[in-house]
Structures are given as C-alpha cells and as structure tokens.
C-alpha cells in the first residue's frame, strides 16, 4: 500500500441514509476507490442521516436527534467522507445551527468538529489525497450535472470535472444550463410537485440534447429525479453517480 496517495489513511465513510437504503452501489463504489488508493475505510455502524429532510422541512427538533447520533457515530475520525454534496452541506452548514438551538454547548462543540472534518468525496480525492486520476476506465460519452449543494454550498468548482476528465475512455460533453437546479429539492419535490416536475423535465431535456450515454452527478437524489423523468420519457440516457464512474476499471469492463 505504500506509495499510494491514501496509504494507511483512516477514513470514515458516511454512506448517507438514502444511498445506504436505495443506492448502495454508490457507497460501495466509494469504498472501492478509496481502498484502491490505499485508504483504510471504516463504516461507523451507528450512522444514519444528516437530518436535512427534517431540517429543511422545518422539523428542527426531530433533526436534532440526527445531529446527536451523527456526532456520536463519527467522533474520533479525522476524515469523514460522503458521496453527497447536500448531506455534506447539511453537516457543515446546519448541524451547528441545530446544536445551538438546544443550548447544549458540548453538542455545539462536537458538531463544529464533525463539520470541519466532513468532506464531499471529490474534495477528499482532490484536496486531501491530491489525485484526479484514480485509475478508472469508463468508455462512454457522459455529461455532468453539478448539483446545487455541491456547486453553490460546497463550492466544489471543477473538482468533479477534473476527476471525470482523468477517466480513461471517458468523453465529457457540456450540459446546457448546467447550473440550473434539477427541481428535486427534498420535500419540494412533493410539496410543489408541478414546479419540481417542470424543472426536472427541462433538466432531462438538456441532458438528452447532449447526446450523452450517461448523466453523472455527485448526488443520488438529483439522479433519481432526473432519471425518473428520463425513464418515464423512454430516453436512453442512463444516470450514474460520479463515485461509480470512478470505481469502474478496465477489469470491470473485461
């Protein structure tokens, strides 16, 4: 393992409740890539959810329980990595706010510490491990949807596209109006379904316009939304999480 960028680095995987439950291939891909780069990945089993669905719907008290559980589960890790911009943003931007409301100074301290150590998968690869070429092979034409939380809350910038451009065989085509929200927005998608669907439909149309085989994002909820429309409309474009693209190697293709 010596010589690998992540050699011996202990990383806690925050799988996120959605991916754990509905898209387990994504956290599995994170494990694959991180282990390939030499990291020692651990999955703290107490973990559940960042609480954003509760926080963002206004149920702060219910969310506080998630925060308590989260800081307990991830105490003691220097690197906490998640394959979801919105969950990372929730940990970083909302946990301290929620903790403050409880008046529990210890929880505020713990939440600030966890927040400071939590990174999106792409940030961990590019900033901590210093890699963009992770040895992946994905011989397809792909377009990238920069999810709102990744782009605007975490300021991931060109990290995801640099990682994609380093994938062997991959052709990256630009997505028109890429910075526009796909319309998922958590409970927005069911509270204001008509607008959500109008936004998702426009996003799916732009995806189809690119002629890509795959639309890639760092956020499964966006992919579920965009993919839901694509599938309903019978479009051939498939969705795939960035981590799964990066996990794919020549050996998988063989």
């Amino acid at each position: 393992m010596l010589g690998l960028p992540g050699a011996g680095l202990r990383v806690a995987l925050f799988a996120t409740c959605i991916a754990d439950t509905l898209t387990p291939d994504t956290p599995k891909a994170v494990v694959t890539v991180l282990e390939r780069l030499g990291c020692v990945v651990e999955f703290p089993p107490g973990q559940t959810c960042c609480g954003q669905i509760m926080t963002n719907t206004g149920y702060f008290d219910a969310a506080v329980a998630s925060v308590r559980n989260h800081v307990r589960s991830f105490a003691g890790y220097d690197h906490i990595v998640a394959p979801s911009g919105s969950c990372v943003a929730s940990v970083r931007d909302q946990h301290v706010m929620l903790a403050r409301r409880t008046g529990d100074a210890r929880l505020v301290e713990q939440a600030s510490q966890t927040a400071a150590r939590t990174l999106d998968f792409t940030e961990f690869l590019v900033d901590v491990l210093g890699v963009t070429d992770v040895g992946a092979y994905f011989p397809h034409r792909v377009t990238y949807h920069p999810s709102c939380h990744g782009a605007r809350f975490l300021r991931l910038g060109d990290r995801p596209t640099r990682l994609l451009q380093a994938v062997e065989g991959l052709e990256l085509v630009p997505l028109p109006a890429a910075d526009q929200c796909c319309g998922f927005g958590g409970t927005f998608s069911i509270k204001i379904p008509d607008v959500s669907i109008a936004m998702a439909t426009d996003k799916a149309r732009h995806v189809v316009e690119t002629g890509a085989d795959f639309v890639v994002a760092g956020e499964n909820s966006c992919l579920m939304n965009i993919g839901g429309v694509l599938h309903r409309d019978g479009a051939a474009v498939r969705t795939v999480h960035l981590a799964e693209v990066l996990a794919h190697t020549r050996a998988d293709a063989a």
Binding site: A15, A19, D20, T21, L22, T23, P24, D25, P27, K28, V31, F43, P45, S189, I190, P193, I197, A200, T201, M224, N225, G227, G228, V229, H231, R232
Partner: peptide
Amino acid sequence: IAGRWLRARDVDAPPAQTFRAWW
C-alpha cells in the same frame, strides 16, 4: 406523496441489499 412523485417520474425498485447489510 408517492402519487405526486410518480405523476411524471419513475422510481427504481429498492435494491435487494442495503449498503449496511453488504458492509
């Protein structure tokens, strides 16, 4: 809720195994 989502969007069936179980 489900109807509001499904009006214009399909969903995949949940996977056979959670990540937690796989791990």
